[in-house]
Structures are given as C-alpha cells and as structure tokens.
Amino acid sequence: MKIDWFTVIAQIINFLVLMWLLKHFLYRPILASIDERETNIKKQLLEAESQKKEAAKARDEFNHKNEIFDMEKDELMRKAAIEAKNEGDRLREEARNEANELKEHLEKAFAEDQTIKNNGMAKRIKGEVLDIARKTLKDLSSASLEGQTLEVFLNKINGLRADEKVKLSKALEGGEPILVHSTFPLSKKQREAIRTTVKSLLKTEAVIEFKTRPELINGIEMLSNGYRLSWSIKDYLKPLEEAVGIES
C-alpha cells in the first residue's frame, strides 16, 4: 500500500482531461438541450398565455356583440310590438268603420225597405179607403165615383175665392195651356164640363190639355204656370198618412 507519485500525477492529468472532455461532450450539450427545451416550453407557455388572452378578448368581444345584438333584438321586438299594436288598432278602427258603414248601410237599406213596405201599405190603405169611399158613394148616389169627383172638382173651381181667381187669371196671362190631370180618363162630356166651367170663371177661352195620372188616386188637378188647383182623396188621406207616418 504505497503511493506511486507518477500514477498520482498521471491520474490528476487524466482527471483534468476527463473533466474537460465530459464538460465538452456531456454537460454542455445536455444543459444546452435542457435550456433550449425550457426556452421552448416558456415560449409555448407565453404563446398559450397570449392565445388565452386573445381567446378571452375574442370571448369578451363576442359577449359584447351578443349584448348589442340582444339590445338590438329587444329594440326591434319593441318596435315590432308597437307597430303590431298600431297595425292592430288601425285594423280594428278600419273594421269598426266598416262595421259602422255596413250598419249604416243596413239601417238605410232597412229604412228604405221599411219605407217601401210602408208605401206599399199606404197604397193598399188608400186603395182600401178608396174602395170603401167608392162603395159608400155608390151606395149614397147612383153616379159613379169619378162623376162625383169631377162634380166636387168643378164645385171647387166655382167656389174659388176672389184672390185665387186673380192668381189663376195671372197664370193664364202667359199664354201657357192649362193642364188637367186625372186618375181616370175623362169622357168628352166631362171634358166639356171642365172647359165650360173654366170659361165661365175666367170669362175667356183657354187651351186645356188633359192627361191621365193614376197616382193621383181618384182625383183631378189643374196646373197652369205655377198655379195648382186639385181635389183628390189623397188630400183627405194625408192626415191618415201623417198619423201612421207614411210618406207619399
């Protein structure tokens, strides 16, 4: 167990050489590799962090856009609701107006219908009354109703007051012919009686035209330049019509 000093020196040199070689071929490359890996990992972590931040930013932006979208949607919904309400109101108003118009139309139609019915009834009543009158007059006298009517009319002409006579005379001054309307066609004799009566009243020859108008209901009327003189059962029926609310 002795120390060989040459071996000691040689081993020191060997150790130093080995140290240099290992440093060059082992520690340095390995540490460099580890450092590079750590750098890469740090870089990746930074990138991941950056991507995370970007993702968070994108998420925030998306949320913000979503909020805006929601607000816009709410606004649109609100506007749509208001428009729908307005449209509904308008349509309801339109429908109400149409309904009112229809109602008015129906009421009018109903009134017209009622009027027509009433008029028909008035005509029937008049007819009935005339029939009754005719029958009564027939029973009272042997002359026909038309003859009685003409007689009454002629009496009315003869019984005109002085001022009315003046009015009739003035009416005839224009040279206009006298129109005589009657419900029934007048016989030649009856026409002559009218001419004679008028002539005796006015003391002058007048042109007289005769026409038949069944709507007069058993009556005669005389027209000349705005002057009118008539007798008809219609005149007697007027108060009845007014009492039952019928317009002739």
Binding site: D4, F6, T7, A10, Q11, N14, V17, L18, L21, L22, F25, L26, P29, I30, S33, E36, R37, N40
Partner: peptide, 30 residues
C-alpha cells in the same frame, strides 16, 4: 510506469467519453 490503474482509467475514460459523444450526438430539445 504504466500500470493497471492507468490503463483501467484510460479505458473508463474512453468508454465514458464515447458514450457521451454517442448520446449527445443526437440530442433533441423537444
């Protein structure tokens, strides 16, 4: 004096360095 100690040391050194060179030749940092 070249004795067994020195020769063994050289062999060990050679093996260690060779192994280091072989392994660190294809180092990867991934």
């Amino acid at each position: 004096t070249i004795n067994l100690t020195l020769v063994t040391t050289w062999v060990l050194m050679f093996v260690l360095v060779l192994a280091s060179v072989l392994v660190t030749r294809k180092l990867r940092s991934d």
